[in-house]
Design a protein around this nucleic acid. Structure first.
Lengths: 202, 202
DNA sequence: TTCTACCTACCAACATGTAAGTAATTTAGT
DNA sequence: ACTAAATTACTTACATGTTGGTAGGTAGAA
């Protein structure tokens, strides 16, 4: 290992950029902010990302989406076999991360990218995040764990609902976000005729 | 009426600013964008808003929140006596407006304002929007129209859920947002033991 | 000597904000 | 009623600072 690990430097840039982009959005973050947060000058970023701010942002978003997808999958797996457990795991994971803020992403930040890059990212969100939620609901529906419903719509609704908990000031409600997420999930599960018992077998 | 209506000019500035701020966020919109959209130069904005971009933004947000509150109240009233009708009315109104994007507002744009102005706006959101939804749910709960639930949490959840529909590309789902909103509302109502019949009386 | 991983110094574009000027209208004084 | 002063609602021009991006240099490792 060299005195400075070169592989790590690029990752640290991505980390810094992710933190700042997630908090303030594309236009409000300057390359100087990103660089100085890790002790570099903004010019150094062009060594790792010759495409400049756009390339850096696109790569940050892609990594973020993939991490969200992987974390979501792991959290749902860890939630156990029941749909309720999986959804609670998903909520715990989503709330442990900084908000994805899909509305802002779709409406604002993605406009800074060339259209095909933007579409690719939205496709990734669908494929790695929404689709996973959706197929869990579909599976539960197929096995009779829940009643008739529109899994795609519910997946989107659950994601929006859980993410929106990021914007409630915890001080006001006096409860932690995960508990609130669980309660909302329970309401929705009851709304689609969730049945617990069926799963005990096998 | 003068050749140029002076009262109207200020309102037109607010309209232009609201349109642009809502779409792209505080930092991504320049005073020149706002001014040139209505045929003025950016310096003219300082005549109507001496406090500059901050004052303009704060005023835009306040007007926006008040309009959302008034529209929400009217839409819920028009929805009839049942909670389902009121919530559908609320959804129709919220989806007819550009997204409020509360997460972005809370996490990003409000940081551009002095803290006390930011707090005032968040208080307005709570008082004029969340509180209205919440008290309708509370009323329904008191009258037995719905079962036990946390009205404050549900109000926030419903708002986040409906607003998140703004970010789903309609082309993908092939259904209009209002229909999706209604379906999600129905799931939640069912989840809190909504009973239709009780209301016929009186 | 060459490559890596930076840094310093710079540039053009554009941001907010200010200063000063101006055409058109209102108001006030006689 | 007629003129002079003041006000309104802007404009042009500019000061100042930041931004993304580029050019060229450099310390240390290979």
């Amino acid at each position: 290992m060299s005195p400075v690990d070169p592989v790590d430097a690029r990752g640290r840039v991505l980390d810094s950029a992710e933190l700042l982009f997630a908090g303030k959005g594309f236009d409000s973050v300057t390359l100087r902010d990103i660089a100085s947060a890790i002790g570099l000058t903004h010019a150094a970023l062009y060594y790792h990302f010759p495409g400049g701010k756009e390339e850096l942002f696109a790569e940050v978003m892609e990594r973020n989406i993939r991490r969200h997808g992987a974390g979501l999958a792991a959290a749902m797996l860890a939630g156990g076999p029941s749909l309720r457990g999986k959804l609670r795991g998903a909520a715990a994971w989503l709330l442990s991360q900084p908000p994805m803020d899909l509305i802002r992403m779709a409406e604002t930040d993605l406009k800074a990218l060339p259209p095909e890059a933007a579409r690719r990212l939205m496709d990734l969100v669908y494929e790695l995040i929404l689709r996973k939620l959706q197929s869990e609901i579909e599976a539960a529906r197929a096995s009779g764990e829940v009643g008739a419903c529109d899994p795609g719509l519910l997946a989107g609704g659950l994601l929006g609902l859980v993410e929106s908990l990021h914007s409630v000031p915890v001080a006001i409600v006096g409860r932690d976000r995960y508990a609130m997420g669980c309660e909302l999930i329970d309401v929705i599960l009851k709304g689609i005729d969730y049945r617990e018992e069926h799963h005990a077998g096998s």
